[in-house]
Write a protein that binds this DNA or RNA. Sequence first.
DNA 1: ATGAAAGCGCTAACAA
DNA 2: TTGTTAGCGCTTTCAT
Lengths: 334, 334
Amino acid sequence: MVKITDVARRAGVSPSTVSYALSGKRPISEETRQRVEDAIRELGYRPHAGARALAGRRSNVLALVVPLRAGIHVPTVMRFAVSVVTTARRHDHDVLLLTQEEGADGLTRVADTALVDALIVMDVQLDDPRLPLLRTLDLPTVLIGFPASPQGLTCVDLDFRAAGEACVEHLARLGHRSVALIGSPPEVYVRRTAFAQRVVQGFTDAADRSGMSSSVHPCETGAAREVAEQLLREQPALTGVVVHNEALLGPLVDAFADLGLRVPADLSVTAICPDELAESARVPITSVTLPTAEVGERAVELLMKKLDGTAVPESTLVPPRMTERASTGRRTVT
Amino acid sequence: MVKITDVARRAGVSPSTVSYALSGKRPISEETRQRVEDAIRELGYRPHAGARALAGRRSNVLALVVPLRAGIHVPTVMRFAVSVVTTARRHDHDVLLLTQEEGADGLTRVADTALVDALIVMDVQLDDPRLPLLRTLDLPTVLIGFPASPQGLTCVDLDFRAAGEACVEHLARLGHRSVALIGSPPEVYVRRTAFAQRVVQGFTDAADRSGMSSSVHPCETGAAREVAEQLLREQPALTGVVVHNEALLGPLVDAFADLGLRVPADLSVTAICPDELAESARVPITSVTLPTAEVGERAVELLMKKLDGTAVPESTLVPPRMTERASTGRRTVT
DNA sequence: ATGAAAGCGCTAACAA
DNA sequence: TTGTTAGCGCTTTCAT
């Protein structure tokens, strides 16, 4: 194994000079820098990660904690992970993969052993049990998602409020006057995450601003047919719906068809969901996507700032991006 | 930060005794071991990973290289990754996530910097460009999948040959006498991976052994209808098919339905694919699953053996596991 | 602009 | 069974 002293000898300089040439932490004359670089290349030198971590108190590794629970959209998680790895590499960091299964212990472990020097935690819940730990751990951390009290933490997520608004505004532009939101199952609103409520806020505010009539329906998986019937019964003027429920999107579109409603001729449908899903419905759905790659990138960049001591905002909301597909059209007055 | 000398002082022993108590690499009297353990617990000591890696020449981290290319089944990759992480943790190792994108350079990097001390490489191709490197790298490595020349490498995968056989034998037991294999696109057989040919071998051999008439059809994505029609035309006695083509499974079942063939009444369908896919077809498909979790587990265990110098077999074939669903039934003689 | 040298926290000879 | 000690390969004061 070739080490820093080998490089130093070959370049005719001291080890510290090699180290500084590598880190740029002190000025090196152009000439020495060149000699050092040559020596490094000729010998194929690569600094030993462990030695670096020990002496430099930085492992250049960050941990990514991925969720396992049922109901998670696996391709989304994977894309997020890939984006984190790619971005981390651009910043000369590697990524250690942790599963949620290890829980809080896993976090203390990698922190205490100095295996990693920063943390990205996905799928943060409103009352996430890891929060107290994360607050005391004093490892730079970025959360994906917003807990109930995000004070003192750094959180990133899609701007779900704006996503709700975007859907409504899209429908408004198409002339629709009466809209409904098909939301997540009731327990999601109560227990889990903040994003469901945010969508509702955005949806309702935008509808009010546009003077549209609107209704909101938290909705169980499997209840597609019931909800579709209920909508027709209770809101006969309805011509636009926003679906924020991955499991229900397909079945709902099917149910509308069964009830003789053509999409988009009779009913325009928008959704907040992974593009993949929107594309694979029987009618491709106009949707606001979860900008996985962008969120991953932002998370890593925030972490890098924190690592070099820069202050970062507590909350980062990634703006929604809407893709128009076949499921929305102008309101046809009959 | 509490370090080994702190523990040693508190327990009234030398640092090396603490180290040995931790590693078990030399006998420690029951009494000292107890004192050391107490001290560790009281102080909340955790060994510094970098220091360990430097002094012990072992990072206790292994790298997992995941594929990115289109056509890969993302949930399968993710499940595999989770299984690798879980198993690695059981063996006191962590997992560094690398993307295929980094290519061979990524492998040299983590090897040369001693960041990891073993490698798991997924999605190995017949003529994988990383093979020469992997052979010279002299890092313990396990490949998922089989290259053209696996000599000197350690490979794990589903036993695709047995999978092909299992499907045919299942159909044979149900009384079917004429079967067809719908395979991957032609280029897969030529270019990519060994598993496609293996399925064909297993399929053909088993059909021959049972005295069944059989045919094999490499098949492009999107050609479902054509293939279905061709099968009916050329093999009128056909009552059983084996599908080894993830993209085609659903469309094919649809095509059979369109052509008036009831599954399983007129035609029994089996597949080799992720369970997820088999379950979500319009008729749940009897299938041989890719035993992701088991392959991940085996890969890690092989690596652990290699790490402590035990010889391991070059090739590990995980036996297929068949799940009977609604798409297969007894041949009905008409 | 560069060098010398003291650690970083741990492991593993070597000694006893 | 335990202790002493010399590194592991790098970073970073402190000097010059």
